[in-house]
Design a protein around this nucleic acid. Structure first.
Lengths: 115, 115
DNA sequence: TTTATATTTCGATAGATAACGAAATGAATT
DNA sequence: AATTCATTTCGTTATCTATCGAAATATAAA
């Protein structure tokens, strides 16, 4: 018997992962930038990113010390393409999301990382 | 600060709740009929149904001893309408789902309930 | 008004998940 | 080569969730 796959919904059922997806819609970001906005431990953010990546929502691009994460431009799963292109429908722009978006616009990697 | 609402995704991230939604797409069913197909305790099925109902995916209609559950024909949340009308897109008809569908067509309430 | 049946509620428990800090890894700079 | 910094991995812990069986509730039948 095959098992019903719920990993897309499970991935989307954590508020911090939804915040990350919305943030990455503005621009690609490294782990420490995301950590700065979410105010979570870097290890926690890294874990969220690995889940989003494994399921196919985002991709990573290494750049020296940094790992830049961005929305997957070509997901192989149509359901993931659909969610990504209709993110605003699924996640309303409430205060948290709006505030994240403002912070993302302002983040300066040289400020936030290394300090 | 408002909290990001993940209850739709959380509701959809349990395989047994997805099976119930798919079954109810074939026809409305009572708790014991669903219990018979899923092979779970009646209390567990009842709990899944209450979650699906509270979030808005299904409605209930009392009929004597029985409580019939069915897909909500007029959800107030557009996201729920969307999920319901595109269920086949989100949940592929794998063996479990197909087998459930066959069982649902055959279930006879007077057989399954009371025995 | 008992009895039977369908469902829900409750309490307990096992397993999953998110969070953290510490340690390990990898890459650039000194 | 040693150091620094970004990230990941690991081990632990607290919380959440799905499950069960037993008890409570509600309705119908005897």
């Amino acid at each position: 018997m095959t098992k019903i796959d719920t990993k897309i919904f499970k991935t989307l059922s954590d508020p911090n992962r939804l915040r990350i997806l919305k943030m990455l819609q503005s621009k690609s970001l490294c782990v420490c930038e995301i950590t700065d906005v979410l105010k979570l431990a870097a290890s926690t953010v890294s874990k969220h990113l690995s889940i989003l990546r494994e399921v196919g929502f985002i991709i990573e691009q290494k750049d020296g010390k940094w790992v830049n994460y961005m929305i997957n431009p070509r997901p192989s799963d149509a359901r993931i393409s659909s969610v990504i292109s209709t993110l605003d429908f699924w996640i309303s722009d409430d205060q948290v999301i709006l505030s994240d978006k403002q912070k993302v616009q302002k983040v300066d990697r040289s400020e936030v990382c290394s300090r």
